[in-house]
Design a protein around this nucleic acid. Structure first.
Lengths: 168, 168
DNA sequence: GCCCTAATTGACCGGCCGATCAGTCAGTGT
DNA sequence: ACACTGACTGATCGGCCGGTCAATTAGGGC
């Protein structure tokens, strides 16, 4: 009966984070209750407070975890090559598309954050956009892309167009 | 002191609707309370219940009002002309863009609805998309547009790309 | 004038909310 | 063996939640 009676704070934390991720992605911050989170993660409400302080604390932790996963993946992609090449650009686009396709939950989470005027992760996000914009500019200078558009705009529009694609 | 002591249920209803629109657009359904709605619209909480039944009732009314305004406007645009003409198509696109630009709140509201898996207005929406798709198909048959893409996809992508544009 | 309907009010309800806290218990270092 | 730390629990808090209800009041039809 008494299975796994040993304490494992790291596992507990990650279980709470996972439950928080699922519920927040599904319903957004305001519509999720601590009781719900506790039940889903199989721990006590108080224990969540013990590990994350407040409901907002957990929300922040969930966002941070999700975004840093996204950030690391994209950063690797973008920092990879430096020679502007139409195939490289094309592949980058395809990879990004694939990533979103395989992580629709992340897209949803970011949409919630955006509606709630959340500025968490904005520095990291700005960095990614800047990296992408540099690639676009290089391509423009190499004559692969029209030069009369703002590189940052290109990236921004592209990201959001991709994000929306899977939502309909 | 006692200004406008006369009763005007229509005005009251519309004031509540307006307050609901503003608050729901801003925070989404779950994060808005009846007390907040009452205070913003300058009436009693009970009065909102009297006019709209429940919080969800008001939410539905707000969505319906916003969407039907959107619907009427777009329907007029789309039903206007029938001869496929590249200028006409272009103008339609520009007008739609302008509409979203001037009604960012509507875009936000639709995003909230979408995240909450709201299917209200889906019939009306389908009708609009169908109208737009027909226009695209006509343009394809007239050789103005590539014929190897799904007209419905064109419209859907276009709508969401436009919607996102103003959000960044 | 009178009545009837409906707009409007304020007091009130049970329940759920997030948060706290004292206390128990398991692991760990000495 | 013992003390200490931190994971974990259950009871409990005040407050806000959405919703109800009986009672007032204004307006329109007769």
């Amino acid at each position: 009966m008494n299975e796994a009676t040993t304490r494992d704070p790291d596992l507990t934390r990650s279980r709470i984070l996972q439950a928080g991720f699922e519920l927040f992605v599904d319903k957004g911050f305001a519509a999720v209750s601590m009781r719900e989170l506790a039940q889903r993660s199989g721990v006590t409400k108080s224990l969540i407070h013990h590990h994350f302080g407040t409901k907002e604390g957990l929300w922040d932790a969930v966002k941070e975890a999700a975004f840093s996963r996204y950030y690391e993946g994209q950063k690797d992609e973008l920092e990879g090559a430096d020679a502007p090449d139409s195939n490289l650009l094309r592949n980058g686009v395809i990879r990004y598309f694939r990533f979103l396709q395989e992580n629709p939950q992340v897209v949803r989470l970011f949409t919630w954050m955006h509606l709630e005027n959340d500025s968490t992760c904005s520095e990291m996000d700005a960095e990614l956009v800047a990296l992408g914009a540099r690639r676009v500019r290089e391509a423009q200078e190499a004559g692969l892309l029209r030069a009369d558009v703002n590189p940052t705009h290109v990236v921004t529009i592209f990201i959001h167009a991709c994000s929306q694609w899977f939502e309909v």
